[in-house]
């Protein structure tokens, strides 16, 4: 099967300022179905620019980008937006959930536009409910975001990213606003999705988080300086178990100390 993302010699130059900024300087990359990639790098390394181009939010200055075999250079703005909605799912650092809207309705949101418009409300609801089941929040479908914890809110956002059955799930610092334990919980959801065959590309600057992925890409000054399988890959389920045991042990110790 051909790679779902094929990038060849991609460049991005911003001309808006006095001096043109060459943010991405020739990235060549194939992403196959079922991959789980961490895109790393310091701020200014070009990882966000690359992510924006992967997400069809920004066009490359030079180079080619085939998404699921379609050359995005040949599409006009509307076609590109349609392609984006069909092929890509997005997860953000700040969750970006609508406040006065239940978890289920938040997940339904991307389906209210584009190709899903001809679907009946029942079909949309069913699909959204299924996505909430995938992230383990079906029992919370009628909760408002302010009734959910940070980790749960991010899981709702992940369900929303999945609802259009994307080819690739793009996540921009999805654990950036979460504490370390909740990060493990969210990474567990990503690993489970990946096990089910969903391709994931994730921007992160935390090495700990990158170790949950399968392949690590490091960008510096707009070029890929490292592309390798993740070392000592961590499985979230094991890590969660370890954390719980450590917590229980700490409780025992403190109880013993109190006696």
């Amino acid at each position: 099967m051909s790679p779902v993302v094929q990038i060849k010699d991609l460049h991005k130059i911003y001309e808006s300022g006095e001096v043109p900024v060459h943010a991405v300087r020739g990235v060549t990359l194939d992403i196959h179905r079922g991959e789980f990639i961490a895109l790393m790098g310091a701020s200014g390394s070009g990882k966000s620019t690359l992510m924006n181009m992967l997400g069809c939010l920004d066009r490359p200055t030079r180079g080619t980008y085939l998404l699921d075999g379609i050359n995005i250079d040949e599409l006009d703005r509307n076609e590109l937006a349609d392609l984006r909605n069909q092929k890509l799912g997005f997860v953000f650092q700040g969750f970006n959930l609508l406040a006065r809207t239940t978890a289920l309705e938040n997940v339904e949101l991307p389906m209210l536009y584009g190709r899903h418009r001809h679907q009946s409300m029942e079909q949309i609801r069913e699909r959204a409910m299924h996505c909430l089941e995938i992230v383990g929040l079906a029992n919370r479908f009628d909760h408002f975001p302010n009734q959910l914890s940070g980790g749960q809110q991010q899981r709702v956002a992940i369900a929303r990213g999945l609802v259009n059955e994307p080819q690739v799930l793009l996540a921009d610092e999805p654990t950036g606003n979460l504490d370390s334990k909740t990060s493990v919980e969210v990474m567990g959801v990503f690993q489970k999705l990946n096990d089910q065959g969903i391709t994931i590309v994730m921007v992160t600057h935390e090495l700990d988080i990158a170790r949950y992925c399968k392949r690590n890409l490091v960008l510096r000054d707009g070029v890929v300086v490292r592309d390798a399988p993740a070392e000592d890959r961590v499985i979230a389920e094991h890590e969660m178990k370890r954390l719980k045991e450590a917590e229980a042990a700490a409780k025992l110790t403190s109880a013993a100390a109190a006696n």
Binding site: L57, A81, D82, R84, N85, F90, F92, G94, N96, L98, L109, P110, L112, Y113, G114
Partner: peptide, 12 residues
């Protein structure tokens, strides 16, 4: 961010 999100989903 939410305005961007709606643009992303091509909301009318």
């Amino acid at each position: 961010n939410l305005v961007e999100l709606f643009r992303l989903y091509r909301a009318r």
